[in-house]
Simulated scan of single mutants.
Amino acid sequence: MTSRRTLLTAALGAVAGSTTAGLAASPAGARPGPHLTVAADGSGDHTSIQAAVDAVPSGNPGPFTIKVRPGVYRGQVIIPADKPDIVLRGQGADPTQVVIVDDRANGTPRPDGGTWGTSGSASVTISGAGFSARNLTFANDFDEAAHPEITSKQAVAVLTRADRVAFDNVRFLGNQDTLYVNTPDAATISRVYLRKCYIEGDVDFIFGRATTVFDRCEIRSLNRGSTTNNGYVTAASTSIANPFGFLIVNSKLTSDAPAGTVFLGRPWHPSNDPAAVAQTVIRDSTLGAHIAAAPWTDFGTWSWRDARYAEFHNRGPGAAITADRPQLTPDQAAATTIDTYLGDWHPQH
């Protein structure tokens, strides 16, 4: 993370506080509907993402676009439940040019006492339904090596707690617990869709109980320098009442970690909840040599064999069909698609 943090700091430039400019009118030929522009150099309506979110009216009746010009925007961002349908759109040529980042971890001390916890560590927390983001980067650049005194190193880049959340051409950067896809409570189903995104991390870096589809994504495991265990890609905590947890499809799992040292997943049971039974399918994807021969593993006393794990038609040096790698039947695969996971919501079309 040190090299990434250096790059982000160098790019920070003149990012400052926020302004209180009003809503921008829609010029001829612009994207229709209400919108605001965030620019680090002060040329927009606001200089911080949070200031723009705060300016969106509560209960806005339709899409509200926040256009973000190239720059690094540091600071925690909270999108509340009463502000649905926010569209966060990076204005750079590619997603590397707009970076939204913070640097706190689970064990980072809070100014008012205690620590942030895993959820509180998130650089961006999304509770507003219908949120979407395109062409930008979310990051948590907490520097593990620089803080040996902090033992709880979970550092979330994005936490979702809403239904119908979509990411298109977005990067998620972190180490442990990069992307936390969750729901408001265990009884609620929330859906998340990622298209052509890049997610990186090492330990449990895609986790939570939301129904989540990764479509044509690159999922990159960082090399922790171990010769035996360089982490876990997923840690789903799907409710037993929900048949749909994580679906990774037409994607590629990459790493420069040694061969056979990364696991596809382990079953997370928050607070030892027996009703959290991980559901994860990886299909029609390319698996690098870093994937372990027995890629599903236990989480403490919870056996991976009691979870709902499966693969189908994967390829690459990390793919295999063995007794330790459950496979979908063709009939099961026909019913395990993006459409079945997302139901009446069709962001992929």
Results as ranks from 00 to 15, higher is better:
R4W: 11
T6V: 15
L12K: 12
G13Q: 02
G17Q: 12
S18I: 07
S18W: 12
T20P: 02
A25R: 09
P27E: 03
A28V: 15
R31W: 09
G33L: 02
P34W: 07
T37P: 02
V38A: 01
D45V: 14
T47Q: 10
S48L: 15
I49S: 05
I49Q: 01
D54A: 14
P63T: 10
F64K: 07
T65Q: 03
R69E: 13
P70E: 14
G71V: 15
Y73V: 03
G75C: 10
Q76I: 13
V77T: 13
P80K: 00
P80W: 07
P84L: 09
D85A: 02
V87Y: 05
P95A: 10
T96Y: 05
Q97T: 13
V98H: 06
V98G: 01
V101H: 04
D103H: 10
G107D: 06
R110W: 09
D112K: 07
D112P: 09
S119R: 06
T125E: 01
S127F: 09
A129C: 05
G130Y: 02
R134W: 11
N135T: 01
L136G: 06
N140M: 11
A145W: 10
P148E: 12
P148T: 00
T151M: 01
A155D: 12
V156M: 00
L159Y: 10
R161H: 04
D163T: 00
R164E: 12
A166Y: 06
N169H: 10
F172V: 15
F172L: 02
L173F: 07
Q176R: 14
D177T: 12
T178G: 06
T178C: 03
V181S: 03
P184G: 05
A186R: 10
T188L: 00
S190A: 15
R191T: 05
Y193D: 05
K196F: 12
C197A: 13
D204S: 11
F205L: 14
F205M: 04
F205N: 06
R209M: 04
V213L: 06
E218H: 06
N223Q: 08
T228H: 02
V233M: 02
T234S: 03
T238Y: 05
A241L: 12
G245V: 15
I248A: 01
V249Y: 05
S255F: 00
S255C: 03
D256V: 13
A257F: 12
A257L: 05
T261G: 00
V262C: 00
L264H: 04
L264E: 01
G265E: 05
H269E: 13
H269N: 14
H269M: 09
P270Y: 14
S271R: 14
A275C: 07
V277A: 06
A278V: 08
T280R: 10
S285Q: 04
S285A: 01
H290C: 14
I291Q: 03
A293S: 11
A294C: 00
T301C: 09
W302F: 12
G316P: 08
P317C: 01
G318A: 00
A319P: 03
T322Q: 07
D324Q: 10
P326E: 00
L328W: 06
L328H: 00
P330T: 09
Q332S: 02
T340W: 02
T340F: 09
D344P: 05
H349M: 01
